[in-house]
Amino acid sequence: MSSALSTKGLQKRFGSLVVAQDIAIELPHGVRYALIGPNGAGKTTLINLLTGMVRPDAGSILLGDADITALSAQTRVKRGLVRTFQINTLFPQLNALESVTLAVLEREGTSGIWWRRLPVHRDAIDEAFGILRSLGLADQCHRPTREMAYGEQRLVEIALALATKPRVLLLDEPAAGVPKEESAGLFTAIAGLSDALTILFIEHDMDVVFRFASRIIVMVSGRILVEGTPAEIAVDPRVREVYLGGVQHD
């Protein structure tokens, strides 16, 4: 069985700073992966590389069996490789329903239609509303995104990604800035997503990581240090040294 997403020899440097060195990962279908590592380890850069927002200097990226290294960011989304952002990257003056409907229309390829009114596209609107309702945002979806509570905006990030019908979903610190007691709810929502979906998420809270990830990748200084199950990672001496032991966590 081929993996959902894999890379070979992925390489990226900014000037003299190596941000990704010889990255080789393989994400099997339907697995929940956590990507952890100290600040500056290159986690977000890896997501940028995978989604085509940053071009690698060398190496290749495969989505299923297809080489997507040369494809544009939006084409990768169309193929099912989708991300969310660590810092809210939303449409401030659109309401949540408009935003998610837009993502549905883009997926359907109907966003170029200018001669029909938006309300005519009932199925797209129903689908967008369904996604928002499943994330508990039904009551808030008429409000401009910028007026929503921060935690709700984090959920809109995920709703936008889901509207593209991803096969592989990369979540860059989905709970960033969300109080600890709320982040569990957010991850419960993520855990409830379809089993067919392959998920890689960056997260700093180790409780969350060990609770929701079925496998963990540890990155340090642009390299992959180790990959394994939570139980293996928890006892790995290298991880304890450079990450869990080296940095005091709150």
């Binding site: 989604t51 927002m53 544009s72 960011a73 939006q74 989304v77 169309k78 989708v82 991300r83 952002f85 990257t89 939303l90 449409f91 401030p92 003056q93 659109l94 408009e98 935003s99 409907t101 837009l102 993502a103 229309l105 883009e106 997926r107 109907t110 966003s111 170029g112 239609i113 200018w114 001669w115 029909r116 009114r117 938006l118 596209h121 797209a124 936008l160 990604a161 509207a163 593209t164």
Partner: peptide, 21 residues
Amino acid sequence: SPFGLALRGIRENWTRMPAIG
């Protein structure tokens, strides 16, 4: 129209647009 919504999306967030395909 849907196209008008897409234009507002571009205005509101140029970088997010490719990320929704």
